Simulated assay, not measured.
Amino acid sequence: MESILDHILGSGMSSRLFQTVREERGLAYSVYSYRQAYEHAGALVVYAGTAPDKAREVLGLVHDELDRMAADGITAAELEGARGHLRGSLVLGLEDSGSRMSRVGHALLTHGRVPSVEELEERFAAVTLDDVAELAAEVLGGPRSVAVVGPFPDEEIAKR
C-alpha cells in the first residue's frame, strides 16, 4: 500500500509531483519521492532540485500536493496505474540478480520472510481507494520535517 501511495505521489514520470513541478511549471529538473522502510519505522521523502529563487514556490507546491493527497486520497485511475507499474517493476526486478538479492534482503530485514511474487501481486490487487486514503491522511497529514540546502538569500525558506 505504501508503494502505491509513493508511486502516485512522486515515483515516476506520471507522478503528481513530477507532472506539477516539472512538466507543468518547469520549476525543477528533478523531483521525486521515495520510501525508506525499517523494522519499526520509516520515512517518506520528497526531493526537488531547483534554483534558489524557485525553492519557495517548489516547496509550496510540494506541501500543497501532500495536503491534497492527505485530504482527498487518490483516484481509481491512479490506483490502477500504480498497480500496473508496481507489478511490472516487480517482474522486471527478477531479471537482475542484484535486484533479486536486494528484494530478498530488504524483505528479510523488514518482514522476517520473503513473500512470493504471487503474494505481492495479490497484495497490490487487494489495495482499495479507502486504504490509500487512510494511509495518506495518516502519513501525509501529520507533522513534516523540512530540510533545504543551498545558498538562499531568505533565511526563512523552510517556513511555509
Rank of each mutant, 00 (worst) to 15 (best):
L5A: 02
G150I: 01
A158S: 13
L120P: 01
A136T: 12
E156Y: 00
E155K: 13
G88C: 08
D96F: 04
R16I: 05
L59F: 06
L108Q: 15
Y32K: 07
V114F: 10
A136L: 09
K54G: 01
G26E: 11
H40R: 15
L5N: 01
F124V: 09
S15H: 09
F124L: 15
A51Q: 14
T75K: 04
E24C: 02
L94C: 07
L66W: 08
H85A: 15
V148L: 11
S30N: 11
D64H: 12
R87V: 13
E80I: 01
H111A: 15
E80A: 08
A55H: 07
V132K: 02
H63I: 03
S11K: 11
V114A: 05
L129N: 09
P151C: 00
L108E: 15
R103Y: 10
H111Y: 15
I157Y: 04
Y34W: 15
A126F: 13
E39D: 14
G26D: 12
V31Q: 02
V104T: 13
T20M: 11
L140N: 10
R35C: 06
G84D: 04
A48Q: 05
A70Y: 14
L94V: 03
S3T: 08
A136R: 05
E118V: 07
E23M: 03
L5D: 01
S102R: 10
Y38A: 07
S30Q: 12
V104I: 15
T50E: 05
D72R: 14
D67A: 14
A77E: 15
V62M: 01
P151T: 00
A48R: 04
R16P: 06
P153F: 00
S89K: 09
D64T: 07
